[in-house]
Amino acid sequence: MLEIRNVVASYGSVVALKDISFTAEIGKITTVIGANGAGKSTLLRLISGLEVATSGAIHWQGESLLGKSPESIVRMGVAHVPEGHAVIAPLTVAENIEMGALFRARSNKDDVKLAIGEVYELFPRLEERKNQLAGTLSGGERQMLAISRALVSRPSLLLLDEPSLGLAPLVVEQIIETIKALCISTGLTVLLVEQNANTALSVADHGVLLSIGSVVADQPAPLMRADSALRSAYLGY
């Protein structure tokens, strides 16, 4: 279980998260939705160790994450795919993927090979473009690559920041279906940050709605999806 308790975070004088608490169940997709600037990316960056919280606690499977470096947090099974197709453009597709497994390349050689084979199976387009520079990929392919980079670390918790950004609905659907299948087959836990609340709530098990740094709703996804008052108040449709 991912447990976020009374987390406060700020950038200088800007308070981005004001006392956030919620939990995400193992093997489920929990989606965090909210308008621009609600604090969604900040939340993921805190979990993966890229930012430091002012106060509060974050636990993954009973272990505290706050205060640890991103390098150590990855080793605890938490993989973060940050906003905006985060791949390293001047490296090849194969190198980007290999990079995600470097930290366990020596101790787990066979499994790394297996994991790389699996992501190529999930995204055959990437295998075809193996030796191409990541910077030459289309937006959708880059997102697949960023996710593959995270998957080869064999995460137990996957943090996805707006995977749908700039992608065609069909590609989004394909990526989300892939993730959903992984949750079912491997027990992967997913924290999915989305602008597009409708898509997110339709695949997620649970929804957390953030508004200017506070949790305003925390319910099963279908309930949240059906709540038109909530939608019009915070999401504007």
Binding site: V74, R75, I88, M99, R149, S153
Partner: peptide
């Protein structure tokens, strides 16, 4: 940043 997130 991406390097750190990859565990480097």
């Amino acid at each position: 940043e991406v390097a750190r997130l990859s565990g480097i």
